[in-house]
Computed example of a mutant assay.
Amino acid sequence: MGLEDSLPDKFSRNLLAGCLMVAKDQKNPVRLHLAAAGLRELFGHILNADSPDDEVRACAWFKQEPNTNTVTRRQKAIYSTQGGLSDAFVERLGLDVEDFHRVAIRSIEALNKATHVRPDTLVNDEVAINSFVDEALEALEGLLQSFSEGRSAVKEALVDDVYRAMSNALIEQTFDEINILAGKGYEIDPWIDDAEIEVEALRSQVILVRFSGVANVTLHYGPKHDAAEIHHDFPFWLRFEAPVEKPTELTLVAHHFDDTSWYI
């Protein structure tokens, strides 16, 4: 997956494309500085998009940095990587992304500096411009990688708990989308096809995990002496929530069974 594919939205992709167009325009004597301004905004958009100040401050690990009343870029990067999960839990995951964050913040500082154009700071050397842009893009890619690695590490740590929560939910819950189709009830086979787990969000107080797959369902009809069964597969997803202080305690908060194929 390339850098463009890792960006969170169309705005980010358009901003990156515009920055690169400016940086490659050899007729523009201030192309480095204009590209730097755009790349700085791209870093800022990515850090701010998924890390509201109030959410970052609500994390148990948050401590106000000396000499500032704001949430720092580093703290926003930490939040986007681990949400409100404790440092101790993150350490148990073996997740080490501090270098990614350090490089990204250093790159933002360099971009800030490059946006100030003065006669003695103007850069128009092709090699220097390409090197500067390449380093900024590598730092951005590393920052995005840290976010991805955070969610992947949480997913791997919780995979057994998610399967267990899924199995319990399918056994204990009644799902209206299926129940309405069954005359005398239904059973869901514990074997789930094409199962996929996704950590949808790491927030200050909770994490959201989504389990999706295809459920093999047996629907029952008719009286005991003349019972009938119909087997049908239903694509579905279940969303679970867990408190950050007890991430293995997953509670079902939403679900959907796709019954479209039943009516075809």
Rank of each mutant, 00 (worst) to 15 (best):
Ile207Glu: 01
Val30Tyr: 09
Ile178Cys: 01
Asp194Gln: 13
Trp237Glu: 04
Val97Asn: 03
Thr68Pro: 08
Asn67Glu: 09
Glu187Met: 12
Leu181Lys: 14
Thr260Lys: 10
Ile197Asn: 01
Thr115Lys: 15
His45Ile: 05
Arg151Cys: 01
Leu93Tyr: 07
Ser204Trp: 04
Ile192Cys: 01
Asp125Trp: 10
Asn69Arg: 08
Val90Arg: 00
Asp96Gln: 15
Glu177Asn: 03
Leu181Gln: 14
Tyr186Met: 12
Ala49His: 13
Asp53Val: 09
Arg31Lys: 07
Ala228Met: 13
Arg31Tyr: 10
Leu85Cys: 10
Asp120Ala: 09
Trp237Asn: 04
Ile197His: 01
Asp194Pro: 04
Ala215Phe: 01
Leu250Lys: 02
Ile46Tyr: 03
Ala17Gly: 11
Gln82Asp: 03
Lys246Glu: 13
Glu149Arg: 15
Glu196Leu: 08
Leu208Tyr: 15
Glu172Asn: 10
Cys19Gly: 06
Lys27Cys: 08
Ser148His: 05
His101Arg: 10
Glu109Thr: 10
Ile230Gln: 13
Ala35Asn: 06
Thr70His: 11
Val159Ala: 08
Thr81Phe: 02
Leu20Trp: 05
Pro29Tyr: 11
Ala88His: 09
Val206Arg: 11
Asp25Ala: 14
Leu144Cys: 03
Ala153His: 01
Asp53Cys: 07
Glu198Gln: 13
Leu39Glu: 01
Thr115Glu: 12
Arg239Ser: 05
Glu241Ser: 15
Glu149Trp: 10
Gln26Ile: 14
Leu238Gln: 03
Pro66Asn: 15
His256Met: 08
Ser167Val: 14
Lys224Val: 15
Leu93Val: 06
Phe132Asp: 00
His231Thr: 06
Leu181Asp: 10
Ile230Tyr: 06
Leu202Arg: 01
Asn14Cys: 06
Ala215Glu: 02
Ser261Ile: 06
Val214Trp: 04
Asn130Gly: 08
Leu32Arg: 04
Gln64Arg: 15
Asn69Trp: 08
Glu245Gln: 11
Pro8Asn: 03
Leu32Ser: 00
Thr72Val: 07
Leu143Pro: 00
Thr251Gly: 05
Ala228Asp: 13
Trp262His: 10
Thr70Pro: 05
Glu55Cys: 07
Gln205Ile: 07
Phe236Ala: 02
Lys184Gln: 14
Thr70Trp: 11
His225Arg: 14
Leu39Pro: 01
Glu198Tyr: 09
Glu126Ala: 11
Arg13Gln: 15
Val253Cys: 07
Ser204Leu: 05
Ala201Leu: 09
Val22Tyr: 00
Leu85Asn: 03
Phe257Glu: 08
His220Asp: 10
Ala169Thr: 15
Leu238Ala: 06
Leu144Gly: 02
Arg73His: 14
Ala228Gly: 14
Ser261Val: 07
Arg74His: 08
Gln173Pro: 02
Glu229Leu: 10
Ala169Leu: 09
Ala201Tyr: 08
